[in-house]
Design a protein around this nucleic acid. Structure first.
Length: 733
DNA sequence: ACGGGTGTCACG
DNA sequence: TCGTGACAC
């Protein structure tokens, strides 16, 4: 529901930049012979020629529309060029367009606060730039006005004149104009320049709206497309809105807009003016009511957020009707594919932007063919996000199973058989959210992952972190082996193809510089982490196991209230982690000084890193990050110290608890709680690879050795003694 | 059985 | 907090 925000009294200059049929342009840049031809981008073409997701203006002349099928488009425009969206892992891969969008953003962000509104839309707050221009080089003082600016459309300006451009020039340069108009004129000049810059550097054309707020700027950018810009002077707002069909307004294109029409008889924005704020509030609630009242008057206080990067990443796919997934095995297969893509994108984000996501969410759509409440929605589920493809895959599967349990309810369903059980999954998606930028690159990134490994994570991760990833899913049907590629390749980093011709500029130049200076790129770090990050053959094994597919977790009731997954092969996971630790340590050292003899010199920094959790390394940089990031995001304080996190050791991880409840049917470990814990504990200790310890700085070695002797191990509750956190397998209490 | 795949926001 | 629903492109 839309919410009203107070509008500041001072006039702002806001621009909305909208790329013209963006996906088409991206493809035309790749294949220049398509330029000027009626072209559309389709995804998946086997069914009715695929669905159109972008249509060139040449093709629109023939009546080709988005959401047509490829076949349909061919009918109305036989010569249309259909280009397919790239496919990876059996699904549409939009990275090409995402990266192209980033190119644009990095150019537009040069002139003011910039908000990436979608893959091909950006808002700019140009107030400061416009004020500055007005003070220093006002348009009337300029000897020549940009040709592009002269092509602006100025709403309310008389166009029935012999020389429109001259008219525009006069408007832009009017000395006696309202201050607000002068600001918009400056905005128009700036935007024209930016658009030319975008064209020059990316070959992409775009359209723009320039107004006093986001709502009007967005409205204006759509008014003259492609490759044009439109200015909305304050004085023409009323005339613009009054006749405008209500559904054209952002946020009113759906049910709310329909309700206004059918319930209030409001067909145009002007019709809304008859209703008092109270009336609107009465019907639609305080927030929406006020928002509607303001909207009708062109009032919108929404700020342009300084955010160049997305707040979440998702990967999903639909499985319409007959293609619905009917077995756990096929769901697992697709989840693995989706998680692989997600993981890859998370690593890119980490590498390029130094950001870490904290929540993994699974969404699905499902049907139950033979059931009373077959309209029930498949519940989405989320949990703390652990980095590493295999871990994401594992967690996503657990989330799915929990969701399926809820979805099916008491309704008994045999999920193991290959026969049709009456349920089907018609859409699956995984997404990563709660993304925060790390205050200072590698240092804090290392902190995070160390915490993650030892369960002292920032996001209250599972206490039994290290023994996860070991319980494969059981086979749940014969379908799984036919044609499913269950053996995954080594980790694949984002395709380089997208960068071959046009470098994707980083969105945060300073961040990038630091990154370049870093000796061990994050990506390398993960690569070095070994199998747990680079493969997930677990899925393959899974099909040969006999466990219940719905029971990867086992409840340990009794004292401690501790939940843990069944631990079938504890050593495997642990061994996987070690190279990662090795790399983490050495990369940290490398970062802190040029060295050939790391051990001594690295010590102080590592100890400092381990012991003092005050985010000292974030100073100075923080400010910059904040301007780029969502300003409301937790910054340094968002990085809870490891010791703080450890104060939560006595808590059960809530996400697993709730999930376990619904998946606990398949039994429990034969071991008592303490028994199992001890076994796990000693196993871990025994499995620590001495060569890793040898690589550690002497102080830390000492600590580890002490810790390895069970009777003498340091008190893990001691805050500063954080090497323990490093290796500590679990937070059992 | 299809606009798909993503993304943001507000609410309870 | 999480999960849902709405909206947008």
């Amino acid at each position: 529901m839309p919410v009203a925000r107070p509008e500041s009294s001072d006039a702002r200059v806001v621009a909305h930049i909208d790329m013209d049929c963006f996906y088409v342009q991206v493809e035309q840049r790749k294949l220049p012979e398509l330029r000027g031809l009626p072209t559309a981008v389709v995804q998946y073409n086997s069914w009715k020629g695929g669905g159109l997701i972008a249509v060139s203006y040449e093709a629109r002349k023939y009546g080709v529309k988005r959401s047509m099928r490829g076949d349909e488009a061919k009918q109305v425009c036989p010569q249309i060029q259909l280009v397919q969206v790239p496919v990876a892992r059996g699904k549409a891969d939009l990275n090409l367009y995402r990266n192209a969008g980033s190119e644009v953003v990095s150019i537009l962000a040069r002139k003011g606060r910039c908000e990436r509104a979608s893959i091909d839309e950006v808002y700019l707050d140009l107030t400061d730039a416009a004020e500055t221009m007005l003070a220093e080089t006002p348009p009337e003082s300029m000897e020549a006005i940009d040709e592009e600016a002269l092509k602006s459309h100025i709403l309310g300006l008389n166009v029935d004149v012999s020389d429109v451009k001259e008219n525009v020039r006069e408007w832009l340069c009017r000395n006696d104009a309202d201050h607000r108009d002068k600001l918009l004129a400056c905005g128009a000049l700036i935007v024209a320049e930016l658009r030319m810059q975008v064209l020059k550097e990316t070959e992409f054309s775009c359209s723009a709206g320039i107004a006093h707020n986001k709502m009007l700027a967005k409205l204006a950018s759509a008014m003259n497309k492609p490759a044009q810009q439109t200015v909305v002077p304050f004085s023409s707002v009323k005339a613009l809105l009054e006749p405008l069909p209500i559904k054209k307004m952002k946020q009113l294109g759906g049910k709310l807009g329909s309700s206004l029409q059918s319930d209030l008889g409001v067909n145009t924005v002007g019709d809304l003016l008859q209703f008092s704020e109270e009336q609107l509030q009465e019907r639609y609630g305080i927030n929406t009511g006020t928002w509607l009242w303001n909207t009708a008057r062109g009032i919108s206080g929404e700020e342009v957020e300084g955010r160049l990067l997305p707040k979440s990443h998702g990967s999903g796919k639909t499985f319409p009707g007959p293609r619905a997934l009917r077995t756990i095995a096929s769901v697992q297969h697709w989840l693995n594919e989706l998680c692989e893509e997600l993981s890859e994108r998370l690593l890119s984000d980490l590498d390029q932007n130094k950001r870490i996501a904290h929540t993994l969410t699974l969404h699905a759509r499902a049907y139950k063919s033979s059931d009373s409440d077959s309209h029930k929605k498949f519940p989405s589920k989320s949990c703390p996000l652990r980095y590493g493809t295999a871990k994401i895959q594992e967690d996503a599967l657990i989330l799915f199973q929990a969701g399926l349990r809820d979805y099916l309810g008491s309704h008994r369903v045999n999920t193991q058989g290959s026969q049709h059980n009456g349920w089907g999954i018609t859409a699956l998606s995984v997404s990563a959210s709660k993304i925060v930028s790390t205050p200072s690159g590698t240092c804090s990134i290392m902190k995070y992952f160390h915490g993650q490994n030892t369960s002292c994570s920032l996001s209250k991760q599972s206490p039994d972190r290290f023994i996860q990833d070991t319980t494969p899913l059981s086979p749940s049907g014969s379908e799984s082996h036919s044609g499913l590629n269950l053996i995954e390749p080594q980790i694949e980093f984002p395709r380089e193809e997208t960068r071959t011709k046009y470098a994707v500029p980083t969105l945060d130049q300073q961040e990038q510089k630091r990154n370049d200076q870093g000796t061990c790129s994050i990506r390398k770090f993960f690569h070095d982490q070994g199998p747990s990050f680079s493969s997930s053959k677990r899925g393959q094994d899974g099909f040969t196991q006999e466990n219940s597919p719905l029971s990867p977790l086992v409840i340990h009731s009794g004292s401690g209230n501790c939940l843990r997954p069944t631990q079938t092969e504890p050593q495997r996971e642990f061994l996987r982690e070690e190279p990662g630790i090795k790399c983490a340590i050495s990369s940290l050292e490398r970062q802190n000084q040029k060295r050939n003899t790391s051990k001594e010199k690295g010590t102080s920094s590592i100890l400092r890193f381990f012991q003092s959790q005050n985010p000292s390394c974030s100073s100075g940089k923080q400010q910059h990050d904040e301007t780029v990031q969502d300003t409301k995001a937790p910054s340094s304080s968002g990085f809870q110290s490891i010791s703080d996190s450890c104060s939560e050791w006595n808590q059960v991880e809530p996400w697993k608890e709730s999930l376990v409840e619904s998946t606990s049917s398949s039994g429990r470990s034969g071991l008592g709680h303490d028994e199992q814990r001890r076994e796990t504990w000693s196993y871990k200790i025994d499995e620590i690879d001495p060569t890793v310890i040898d690589e550690l700085p002497p102080e830390i070695q000492k600590e580890v050795h002490a810790w390895l002797r069970p009777n003498k191990r340091p008190n893990i509750a001691k805050r500063g003694s954080s090497i323990a956190h490093y290796f500590l397998p679990t937070k059992n209490t």
